[in-house]
Amino acid sequence: MTNWEMVELHRNSGDWEKVVEEIVRIEKRVFPKHESLAKSFEEELKKKNNGLLYSKIGGEVAGYVMYSWPSSLYASITKLAVKENYRGQGHGEALLKAAIEKCKTRNIHRISLHVDPSRIAAMNLYKKLGFQVDSLVECYYSSDRNAYRMYLDFDTD
């Protein structure tokens, strides 16, 4: 991962529209239509207690992670995606670690996420960073696609 940077998306940044357009293109490629936030991405980002980090290489968005913290106790990773040509280079791990750190600064006690059990690379990444399977949620994505609910707890000393 050479010549890349991690950026937090801010509503008032000069490249907001360009970045959101690139993220929406990634969203459409990576996620099935019924799971994609492509049509409502800007509305999602306007919600209180939402954050988005993205990795940038030479002015191009390589991947992003969206997270929310609905309460002071827990947060959720709602999206994590990396463009195909940048996969396997550590971008997903770097994005997820950065989101975890952002949540820690808010004194969050638990981060949760949902993942399709067939997405082996994603499952391995989450487990590598300490996430544990909580339960199987049947029909989470659709009538024939389940999800694991996973979580990562932090010490509350």
Score class of each variant (00 low, 15 high):
59 G>H: 01
9 L>D: 14
120 I>Y: 12
143 S>C: 07
149 R>L: 09
10 H>G: 01
90 G>Y: 04
150 M>G: 08
155 D>Q: 08
95 L>F: 05
42 E>R: 15
67 Y>T: 01
34 H>K: 09
107 N>T: 10
124 N>F: 02
128 K>E: 09
127 K>H: 14
46 K>Q: 15
70 P>E: 11
133 V>C: 12
76 S>V: 04
57 I>G: 00
4 W>L: 05
32 P>V: 10
149 R>W: 04
55 S>N: 02
39 K>E: 14
17 E>M: 06
71 S>V: 03
74 Y>L: 05
78 T>W: 05
50 N>D: 01
92 G>Y: 03
118 S>C: 01
13 S>A: 15
120 I>M: 12
10 H>Q: 08
108 I>C: 09
89 Q>T: 02
153 D>G: 10
35 E>D: 10
123 M>I: 11
139 C>I: 03
136 L>R: 15
94 A>P: 00
54 Y>L: 08
130 G>L: 07
41 F>M: 15
80 L>Q: 05
17 E>T: 11
6 M>N: 01
128 K>C: 00
139 C>Q: 15
106 R>K: 15
147 A>Y: 08
21 E>S: 11
4 W>D: 08
66 M>L: 15
21 E>N: 14
62 A>H: 01
65 V>T: 10
61 V>K: 07
16 W>A: 02
10 H>W: 04
152 L>T: 09
40 S>Y: 12
55 S>W: 02
19 V>H: 07
28 K>V: 08
156 T>L: 07
122 A>Q: 04
49 N>A: 10
121 A>K: 03
24 V>P: 00
24 V>A: 14
130 G>T: 04
54 Y>R: 02
18 K>P: 00
124 N>V: 05
128 K>A: 04
91 H>C: 04
30 V>W: 01
144 D>S: 13
93 E>A: 03
27 E>V: 01
110 R>I: 08
105 T>W: 11
129 L>I: 10
76 S>A: 13
59 G>F: 06
68 S>L: 09
144 D>F: 05
118 S>M: 03
133 V>L: 04
23 I>R: 05
106 R>H: 13
67 Y>Q: 10
3 N>D: 09
1 M>F: 02
20 V>F: 14
112 S>H: 07
18 K>S: 03
127 K>D: 15
119 R>C: 05
156 T>E: 06
45 L>D: 08
22 E>C: 01
93 E>T: 02
33 K>S: 06
128 K>Y: 00
148 Y>E: 13
58 G>L: 01
102 K>H: 10
33 K>T: 09
32 P>F: 07
86 Y>R: 08
21 E>L: 03
4 W>G: 02
17 E>Y: 01
54 Y>T: 03
99 A>Y: 06
73 L>K: 15
10 H>R: 14
47 K>Q: 15
90 G>N: 07
110 R>V: 06
128 K>W: 03
87 R>S: 00
124 N>E: 14
83 K>D: 12
3 N>C: 07
